[in-house]
Nucleic acid binder design. Structure first.
Lengths: 216, 216
DNA sequence: GAGTGGTCTAGACCACAAC
DNA sequence: TTGTGGTCTAGACCACTCC
């Protein structure tokens, strides 16, 4: 959680943790099993236990990584940065991040599949939490992928709505009243807000799926 | 899973299961702890462990029980049954249920909040899996609540899209091109399909939220 | 006071994958 | 062959809650 262990790092073997914390192996095992079932570590016989790469979608709701999704379907992914600006927390367009003070980076970009617009992303990044974002080149890595790789998150919240394309219609090459699926996400690390993102998809060409099983 | 234990039933105490299966208490405890963390049972000191009432929304994605949602906001809930018919599996409108043969019950109803339309529900119920549905009075219990109470489910899948109101516009009292959020759900019990439901909400007055935490 | 779940210990055997 | 995780046993103490 603290970020001291990075994705891919090996955590100590069970017998090492037994010695370190002076407890029985069953106790260590239960703790690690809980971390594994929560998806925080992956365990492999004979090799050890490793910190997993954090993923937003987790078990139930499959929130896609847009680049991954597009490339998996065999299309060429590209990102077009439309605007990039630094705002104060009191700016009206900074409101969704819900910060009382400080500066934030505002991005607006278009995800392209085979050079055709796929989704519009409007993002706010809290620069107090992620100062490195100022120097990041978001033309190479999409902002979402860059953030996932650089900043560990502990909590995320999504909101899904339907709305007309509105002022994103030109970027998506749609009619202004075309129904679109709007996915908003807030991400926190402990108590600190990291980022807010609003992604707008054409309702005809995109859906979200979620799978539940009573067990497992 | 089999339905032999109904919601609210007490399952045997740990020491009884030890005797029944001839294993150590830790083994029983791990099994019951897993069931509890999966939300299938609730455990209480001194009282025992009880089968929980199944809920569709589970931990992450909050899929609302519409009646509950409306009443929680202090509105009067009502249901209007628009159509009710029995179809063959080969009927075009039965296609979403993906059955190869048999009969199914088709329902279309409007959920009302303070007598104003809130959502349109289009539902297909597999009568081979749920014969009792023929005799149910869906004017009292909404179909979703009735099914949850009568049929245990083991798997559910959701699909969320955005679409124009279309032919539900009249029922929802909206323009035909008004963006709506469409929630589709398939529910299974083991390999058998129980029901398919498509719920259409006004995009302006409804959203779905999902919360994730890395831990817990 | 009694009985439940919550949790821990110390030791054991097994399966599997790397060497 | 070796060392890891996976899983089990038998026994123990504690906290909480109902009686």
């Amino acid at each position: 959680m603290s970020g001291a262990l990075r994705p891919g790092d090996r955590i100590p073997f069970e017998h090492e943790l037994m010695a370190e914390y002076g407890c029985a192996r069953m106790t260590v095992n239960k703790a690690l099993s809980a971390l594994a079932s929560a998806g925080l570590i992956a365990r492999q016989r004979r090799r050890g236990s490793f910190v997993t790469r954090p993923r937003i979608h987790m078990a139930a709701l499959r929130i896609p990584d847009i680049r991954e999704e597009i490339e998996k379907r065999g299309h060429v992914y590209a990102l077009r940065l439309v605007t990039r600006s630094v705002l104060g927390a009191d700016s009206p367009s900074a409101a969704p991040l819900r910060l009382s003070h400080g500066k934030l980076l505002s991005l607006r970009c278009v995800h392209l599949a085979d050079a055709r617009p796929y989704a519009v992303e409007e993002r706010l990044i809290n620069l107090a939490a992620v100062p490195d974002a100022m120097d990041a080149d978001f033309a190479i890595d999409p902002p979402g992928s860059w953030l996932l790789a650089h900043v560990p998150w502990t909590e995320a919240e999504h909101r899904i709505t339907a709305a007309p394309a509105g002022d994103t219609a030109i970027l998506l090459e749609l009619d202004t009243d075309k129904p679109c699926l709007v996915l908003e996400r807030w991400t926190w690390r402990e108590a600190e807000t990291i980022t807010y993102v609003r992604t707008i998809f054409d309702g005809d060409s995109f859906d979200l799926t979620a799978h539940f099983a009573s067990q497992g």
